[in-house]
């Protein structure tokens, strides 16, 4: 049962978006998220929608995969929509008992729903088109400048990639320990929440012990292979910008300018 969980949610395909440098995608996602919160104009959202649809089409990822991530945020969307709908001051349209609905409230509510849905779409596109290894590489290289203020970027990226490598191994191990404990009569399925949580202890203790042992072994193996931090380290697959990445940066620039122009021009207006 634990084996079914797939790592990350990479969707294998050969598209322009897949081939882009991870740094471009990271920055693109960041700009996209910021643009979502820059204003409340219909035109702004029209632009964002066009951009999002274009990227989804280019990425060749089926829409089904993108909307799959949506299920987990349904409750969040409903709650924030309700707050916005009932708690915004303005021109009253409808009043019922203690609840009032205003014109501004309706706008706010609709925009909030759109924002949240687009947010998930945008970030899913990034994780669906980038392998975890690529993503950590992108973070390491893209945040290189933080090294100047003594942030251990390389070390953090190394930890992330090692964590990714060990997730399947530890899952397998959990499965094994669980079966071993079940063979000795452990019961993980019945009882209330507290009882079930307590039943997890005999799994967690051996799992932690073995994780520490593995960490010890791995550290020794890394040392034996001359690992000594990022100093003087070369890469087998260094990230290099290609012409498509430059073009993507230009497209991102154009997008940002348009977004800023619209949000300034349409300040405080909906249409």
């Amino acid at each position: 049962m634990l084996r079914d969980i797939t790592l990350g949610q990479y969707y294998r395909a050969n598209s322009l978006i897949h081939r882009l440098d991870p740094r471009v995608k990271l920055l693109g996602t960041l700009i996209f998220i910021i643009s979502l919160f820059l204003g409340q104009s219909i035109w702004l959202y029209a632009l964002i929608t066009v951009a999002l649809i274009a990227v989804i089409k280019l990425s060749k990822v089926p829409l089904k995969y993108i909307t799959k991530g949506m299920k987990s945020i349904v409750i969040l969307v409903i709650i924030s929509a309700a707050f916005n709908l009932f708690l915004t001051d303005g021109e009253v349209i409808f009043r019922f008992w203690k609840l009032t609905i205003t014109r501004e409230g309706i706008y706010q509510c609709v925009f909030m729903i759109i924002r949240l849905i687009y947010l998930i779409c945008g970030t899913s596109i990034m994780t669906l088109t980038t392998t975890p290894t690529n993503l950590t590489d992108g973070i390491e290289k893209g945040l290189d400048f933080l090294n100047k203020i003594k942030v251990p970027v390389h070390e953090v990226a190394m930890m992330m990639s090692i964590a990714l490598r060990f997730i399947p191994i530890l899952m397998e191990e959990t499965d094994k320990i669980m079966k071993a404990q079940m063979a000795r009569g452990a019961d993980f399925e019945s009882g209330n929440l507290v009882k079930r949580a307590k039943a997890l202890i005999p799994i967690l203790v051996p799992l932690f012990v073995s994780a520490f042992r593995r960490a010890n072994d791995l550290a020794m193996a890394m040392e034996a292979r001359c690992y000594h931090g990022s100093e003087g380290r070369t890469k087998m697959k260094p990230l290099k910008y290609k012409s498509r990445d430059h073009k993507a940066y230009i497209a991102l620039g154009v997008y940002s300018v348009l977004v800023i122009a619209i949000s300034i021009f349409m300040k405080g207006r909906f249409i």
């Binding site: 593995r214 193996a221 087998m236």
Partner: peptide, 19 residues
Amino acid sequence: DNQIIGTVVEEEVAFGPEN
């Protein structure tokens, strides 16, 4: 299992030379 660092075989083999 405890001495493989890379998530892809070729990257794993490259770890030593990279260092």
